[in-house]
Design a protein around this nucleic acid. Sequence first.
RNA 1: GCGGUAUUGGUGAAGUGGUUAACACACCGGUUUGUGGUACCGGCAUGCGUGGGUUCGAGACCCACAUACCGCCCCA
Length: 431
Amino acid sequence: MKYQKPKGTADILPQEAQLWDEVEAKSREVFRRYRYGEIRVPLFESYDLYARSSGDTSDIVTKEMYDFNDKGGRHMALRPEGTAGVVRAYVENKLYGPEFPKPYRVYYMGPMFRYERPQSGRQREFHQIGVEAFGSDSPLLDAETIQLGVDLLHSVGVHDLRLAINTLGDPETRQAYHQALVDYFTPHKAELSEDSQIRLAKNPLRILDSKDPQDKPLVADAPSILDYLTPAAQAHFSVVKESLDKLGIAYVVDPTMVRGLDYYNHTIFEIMTTSPAFGNKELTVLAGGRYDGLVEQVGGPALPGVGFGLGTERLMLLVQHNRPAEEAAPLNVYIASLSEPAGAEALVLAHAIREAGYTVDMDFLNRKAKSQFKTANRENAQLVITLGEDELAHSAASIKQMATGQQIQVPFAEVTTEFHKIYQQLVEEGK
RNA sequence: GCGGUAUUGGUGAAGUGGUUAACACACCGGUUUGUGGUACCGGCAUGCGUGGGUUCGAGACCCACAUACCGCCCCA
């Protein structure tokens, strides 16, 4: 084969695209109710924007960025996640201005890119649906955002969710906890896995997330961030938990949960689900958190933000798995034509019937009547219009109702102007 | 980035170095005039991911590369 799709990309073919369309439509409806507006930002931005916002030591930056130099020598990167670009747009368009509501709420959906080894539910080009809300540091907004995520998943028929939350506290908390981890792990450095020894120097928080059995006993006894929260961070987290309780949203606090991006602080959360679609493994389908300080870091005012991103491919696996295979939408009319002049007439009638709002297809391969009927049958056609010598001679179409086999003659003029009546008479009343 | 497994028509695949790459499904056509199903008949890979090599002979063996899947790292 001469050309193959780039590694880690996928073609979404019409049948599947229809499902995407439905999921996106349902998402939009949920966002509308929460007063989120759509924002469309570039698929690529300056490399520095992502590098600085995600954190220089994050894996996304150090090994997963899909970056390139453009013809003008600018160092660009395809977006590895949605938040940075949205924050940039928020700042650049001064959406923090007094004329805009706070929180300022936006959602996006589209492709993201990470240069990594593909696996199932994990590609180099993948899609996310995400939301961001700027300008409020209220823990109630954290809770609302989580509720939005849950609603979103419910709306597309995904239940059986497990919500895990944690807090990374404020900068003061993080710094104290970082130090505590270093103090705890350093004496045991030799007992840590090779990966975790590197993490200890780069990002000790990540050790908590290690799946290496060698690290597990040490991680189990590691200090918990919950013991290092400043009173303010403590208070914030308490309100988030109380709000979730009040909303009746079940959750577990997982003090070892961390994020791949450095900009998070305070509340972070993941919604996971176990499904045969994932080989019965538990996978995170939606994740997010608060990122106070990011707007400022990108050059805007010191305004807080909170949001989440959900992996569309993973969601699609779930939705596909839950849904029974539905039969194709019926074709209203197929036009069989038996000669070239008949084909030309078919084109005219097809247009008129489409104008009337019906779906129409016809033959473009000059096939025999029998073959055309076979195709009509396979396409689940309700009516077949046959155009041959007789029909052209009398300027009247033969219209056959496929379910009953009944066939009638109708003048072309009537087909063109009164198709709605004909359809009702043949299809709807026939039921 | 590291490790493992795989790659044969539109699809599912058989093929364990030796003639024309099995079988099935799908699709297309036919069984005399312009009508759907079934049945029957016929057609449908000069080629086995790509490029090299070994051999008298390669879809089968070797090497490299590409891609997919699984695991690690990490993550949506």
